[in-house]
Simulated assay, not measured.
Amino acid sequence: MSNERRVLVHPDKEALAGSVAARFITKIIDVLDDLGEANVCLTGGTMGSAVLAAINSSPARDSVDWSRITFWWGDERYLPLGDPDRNDTQSRAALLDHLQLDAAQIKSFPAPGDQPDIEQAARYFEQVLADAAIDGARYPRFDVTFLGVGPDGHIASLFPDHPAVRETERVVVAETASPKPPAERLSLTLPVINSSDRVWLVLAGADKASALGLALAGANVNDVPAAGAEGRKRTVFFVDKEAAAEVPENLIAPSYYWTSADDNSER
């Protein structure tokens, strides 16, 4: 299995969300046909929710057998369940609550009060991941992992120059000093994220242009965590024109620019 890295540029945020939604539906149907079940790792944020909302509104939504998909998240704000700032709350509103899912299909990170403290919450969720794995693995096989990218280049809750971005032994880390609120978060570590068959980074807006350029240029992962995102089979940066505006032309091949005829390029 060889990794293939692509950058696909879309004219605006709406086109970006719609294209990613269409590609996801097509890809996850293929995965279910091949493997019988799937694990999908979601992200929060504006574009993460926009993609899920586009999946929900797609005429092809019900062609997916959602009963065979388990949903996870790459990270979570350590806030009470149902808090509007939690990633799982946003994902539920955008898509998951519109599907007929069993509660066991939604693997949310713990909330305050579920465990004695955030560090024990991280340990607990490591066991949840291990329980869903096979053959003694520490976490399940992820088929698609969605990631947002912050203006500082962070992915999940792995921030520049924070110990969590360098963590290689733990599966879940407790971030207690996030540079953006809330300070406390839970996050999968980079090796776990990179165990996914496909890592799809979705970013839009001019404020993401610098982070995108640095990630594609091979910046140090400690400085730009997005530079370290790499799926086992494929890594795709789905971006809009504003996010791509400052990326040198040699980093985005013209053939990678998205057109309506290009929908087969990540299937």
Rank of each mutant, 00 (worst) to 15 (best):
S2W: 15
S2K: 07
V7E: 10
V9S: 07
P11A: 07
K13H: 07
K13W: 06
V20E: 00
F24W: 13
F24N: 05
F24P: 01
I25G: 04
K27C: 05
L32R: 01
D33P: 01
D33Q: 12
D34A: 15
N39H: 15
C41K: 01
G44R: 08
T46Q: 14
M47Y: 03
M47Q: 12
M47L: 12
G48W: 14
L52Y: 10
A53W: 03
S57T: 13
S57P: 00
S58E: 08
A60H: 07
R61V: 15
V64A: 04
D65Y: 01
R68D: 05
D75E: 09
D75S: 09
P80G: 12
G82Q: 05
Q90V: 06
S91Q: 11
Q100E: 15
Q100R: 14
A103Q: 12
Q105C: 08
P110I: 06
Q120Y: 02
A121M: 13
L129I: 09
D131A: 15
A132T: 11
A133K: 00
A133N: 00
D135V: 01
R138F: 01
P140D: 03
F142Q: 00
L147V: 02
G150C: 02
G153A: 10
G153C: 09
H162D: 11
T168W: 02
E169S: 13
R170V: 03
T176W: 01
S178M: 12
P182Y: 09
R185P: 07
L186A: 12
S187R: 01
T189N: 05
N194H: 09
S196T: 11
D197H: 14
V199Q: 00
L201I: 14
L201T: 15
L203M: 12
L203V: 13
G205D: 03
G205N: 02
D207K: 12
A209L: 10
G218K: 10
V221F: 01
N222R: 07
D223I: 07
V224Q: 08
V224A: 06
P225N: 04
A227M: 06
E230T: 14
R234Q: 14
F238N: 04
V239Y: 08
D240E: 13
D240T: 04
A243Q: 07
A244Q: 13
A244E: 14
P248R: 03
P248L: 10
I252E: 04
I252V: 13
Y256C: 11
N264K: 07
S265D: 08
S265N: 02
S265Q: 00
E266T: 10
